[in-house]
Design a protein around this nucleic acid. Structure first.
Lengths: 222, 222
DNA sequence: CCAAAAGTGTTCGTACTACACCCATGC
DNA sequence: GCATGGGTGTAGTACGAACACTTTTGG
């Protein structure tokens, strides 16, 4: 079956930058391409939009299909439209970024899950298409947004220590923070609460565990 | 001539929210539609992308064709993709916003220029498609961005007084500013410089005229 | 008792807020 | 000389930045 139009139409895809902090570094999930073009090279997960879904839905679907990831924070980033960005045909890509907790990540089997892998954003292979540019923009946006909103909490698991939270902030924004100032700042936001539990991780004082008070909400600061 | 694809492709358009401060209010340029759907109703200028142009180019072209406006600040806003946002066919719209100085505006004749008109954003007719939603987002984005960047200067003519600048900021962000504090703030940014000229507008002390130091640059603050 | 990370307060500087009067001009 | 908008300074407050030691635990 084919589809015919009176005027030429571009193809439209979503590409998703899936970010997390894992093993002490900001990481991105990449997929090894199984088909031309760029066969065997790494790329962001993504795919063509269907006629009966919105872009948000498309991004969420691709995330589930290609990476086995569901129910995560997903936000539209930017739309890329370079005329020659895809060698096959004219493709306009609406980029999204997703934030997921760095703990308890199991890459469930998707279509290509065997070829999905986490890479440190700062030590990544050459990417397909203009995906390197997209990744850079996602990273910049995340760093900026963590300073004026509470998106950073989307990188947190259900329960976490303040040291872990600080580490995630430092890795995601690539800036060191002072321990006492960071804690004062977080508490002043009124977005986390103590669970009452403690977490022992070695021969030293155990840390208090916290949770996000309103997990769904992302509020702007300032 | 027709165009055929193996899979269905959506149409892609750009829609442009052209904003300015005019007669003491934030205004948007709307165009009366000459064709169905929504014939006779007001809409944002915009149109379908061509196969050999990027979205930025498309937005700039539509701006020139439909409103006769060239060489202005233009920034991608968001991509709208509701399945039923256009009754004709599946259309994905990449929204842009443009900022232009409120003085010396002459609506040069474009294709539909006779039917282009400025409306106060707060007192506008019912809009076609989802353009009301797009306009609201542009307005919110502008107000936010004027607090942490120097985009606001894109609303300034070549030479302007500080009172006029303050008025534009107040109208665009919908918040009053203290005169002395506003002036201190602007000067601390180091983005405007005195021309040495004065401007008399009535039976009172004439105002100093200023210009933007680096007209092309838009820098982030904080 | 030793090593290791958790937890905790104070001081300082800067930036934003609030606020009221004199100045220069046209008529 | 009077009406009108243009132009200016200071004091108080709040927020971010810098900075070091005690606490609790496991081994």
């Amino acid at each position: 079956m084919t589809y015919t139009y009176e005027y030429p139409h571009p193809a439209v895809t979503t590409d998703i930058v899936i970010l997390t902090v894992l093993d002490g570094a900001l990481k991105v999930l990449l997929i090894k391409r199984g088909m031309e073009p760029f066969k065997g090279k790494w790329a962001l997960p993504g795919g063509f939009i269907k006629m009966n879904e919105s872009l948000d839905t498309c991004a969420a679907r691709e995330l589930a299909e290609e990476a086995g990831i569901k129910d995560v924070y997903l936000e539209q980033l930017y739309t890329f439209s370079g005329v020659d960005r895809d060698p096959r045909e004219r493709v306009i890509s609406v980029a999204y970024y997703a934030l997921i907790p760095g703990k308890n990540i199991t890459l469930e089997a998707g279509t290509d899950a065997a070829d999905a892998k986490w890479f440190a954003v700062d030590d990544r292979p050459e990417l397909s298409f203009d995906h390197s540019q997209i990744l850079d923009m996602a990273r910049t946006r995340l760093a900026a947004k963590m300073d004026y909103s509470t998106v950073g909490l989307k990188l947190m698991p259900a329960e976490f220590t303040l040291s872990y939270l600080q580490d995630v902030y430092e890795k995601a924004t690539n800036k060191p923070r002072d321990k006492r100032n960071f804690r004062k700042w977080v508490f002043s936001l009124n977005v986390i609460e103590a669970t009452g539990k403690k977490y022992s991780s070695g021969p030293h004082r155990p840390a208090m565990l916290y949770r996000v008070s309103a997990p769904e909400e992302v509020k702007n600061i300032r």
